[in-house]
Design a protein around this nucleic acid. Structure first.
Lengths: 160, 160
DNA sequence: TATTGTTATACTCTATAACTATA
DNA sequence: TATAGTTATAGAGTATAACAATA
């Protein structure tokens, strides 16, 4: 354990720290949530690299797949993305012919988003990979622990 | 529930989505971890605004407080920050006279970081606020649930 | 030769203002 | 008047390369 500081009269020369003590930060939910999130995202990024999908791309295409005809606005609200930042993503995905914009049946301003045939095929594989990734964490967590963890995380960001 | 897509022969006009179905994404640990992390960070940012501390600033100063004499390299390793990106943060905190660099006792290349007296005072209050913030989540989670959640998060990012 | 701290720099992510066309 | 999609742009966060001083 490091020698306690003497802040009221600082020593002229610095002390040396052998091992970093992170115990206080580790009591904080935010710190742990961020670290865990980064660890999971890291594995996710690796597994999605063959599909050339970043986490955001995956989320967008997954919502389009399960909500054919979804609008940009709905995507932004669901994923916490700002409209100007979604435009480029959709453009890139449309250029890759994974998704297409069609006129909205009831709102002339809006565009409905749909997966193309290759987009549907890609996402079927990508979502299977994502589901398998969950199982990969079985080496760290049991199935029960994983369910508990996800349940508690939901209570954090969606109280009630 | 939205009508299933017919990807093999796309309809010429988009379907309309009334309510967005996020059920698949919600089965994924990464999605839930990110959403929960953002929710916690959001509250953290609000509570730390009076101290003019961003989450990173708080983490840095907290580690300096509990590890007087810690070097930049050690901070970077502990927090996953790249050395070039830490320089500006330390400079800003030093300009605010919250932290100071002193020569390392045994390594002429390194600088030991220490809180100043006002830095120590600020962080005592800031860390108390951070601890109280945990309690604020008691409205969403019980104390037991919070302990369980943090324990499981640790298992995710620090397996073994 | 390797490492600490640093500068310069580039790339990504996120945020704000303003325009257009429809409602 | 308000909203969906878009453009342009600014800011924050994150990344790599390279250098001087020291180990």
């Amino acid at each position: 354990m490091p020698r306690p500081a003497a802040p009221s009269r600082p020593a002229p020369v610095a002390a040396a720290v052998e091992e970093v003590d992170t115990s206080f930060l580790e009591t904080l939910l935010g710190y742990n949530a961020r670290r865990a999130g980064l660890a999971v995202i890291d594995v996710f990024v690796q597994r999605m690299a063959p599909f050339q999908l970043k986490p955001v791309d995956f989320s967008v295409l997954s919502l389009v797949r399960h909500n054919p005809g979804i609008t940009s606005r709905q995507l932004c609200t669901a994923l916490g993305i700002l409209p100007p930042n979604l435009v480029g993503m959709i453009n890139a995905l449309e250029k890759r012919e994974l998704v297409e914009r069609r006129p909205h049946p009831r709102d002339g301003r809006a565009m409905g988003l749909h997966l193309t045939v290759p987009g549907e095929k890609l996402m079927r594989d990508a979502e299977r990979t994502a589901a398998e990734l969950e199982a990969a964490f079985a080496s760290r967590l049991t199935a029960t622990e994983l369910r508990t963890l996800i349940g508690l995380l939901k209570k954090v960001y969606r109280p009630g």
